[in-house]
Amino acid sequence: MTSQAPGLWPPSGPEVVFLLLGAVAVGTALLVVTTRQLVHAALWLVVCFGALAGGYLVLTAEFVAWVQVLIYVGAVVVLLLFGIMLTRAPIGPSAGLDSGNRWAAALVAVATAAVLVTVVVTGFRTAYAPLHPGQGAAEPLGASVFRIWVLPFEALSVLLLAALIGAIVLSRTDIRGRE
């Protein structure tokens, strides 16, 4: 897997595309955690997830890319927007979205980034993955989900059902706990 890998520079075509998408994802993620408008944070999150889906496409993980678009962009962001609306957040810019320990948080985040980037760069500098289109299409993924990963799949569906019922019970006001 690491034999006859081309050099890190210049990057090939797919790598250039992936790096551009990654830059978009990281930049919009920074906007999500720094913007002063709640609704804009959710909308920047859409751009970030979309760029990540494009990155999955470049990595030949097509099915994961479409599931990402469907569930994250389609469902999770809509849920977050509903949450923003239902908690009556102000639409305009609002102060006080950041807590007082912002500088400590920035310090921790920069330290985390430094440690992680150093470790992965030293660990995987020579690793090279040749891309074969169709590797992550729906057919091989579906075959492996329903042949090998059936038990976790079923357990996960039970978990999803439990989470749904829990969310309904939590958000209804006419269900009281036992006295």
Binding site: A5, L8, P11, S12, P14, E15, F18, L19, G22, A25, V26, G55, V58, L59, V117, V120, V121, F124, R125, A127, Y128, A129, P130, L131
Partner: peptide, 10 residues
């Protein structure tokens, strides 16, 4: 695709 790029982005 070098593995370094996606891993650093992540």
């Amino acid at each position: 695709m070098h593995v370094v790029y996606p891993v650093v982005v992540s």
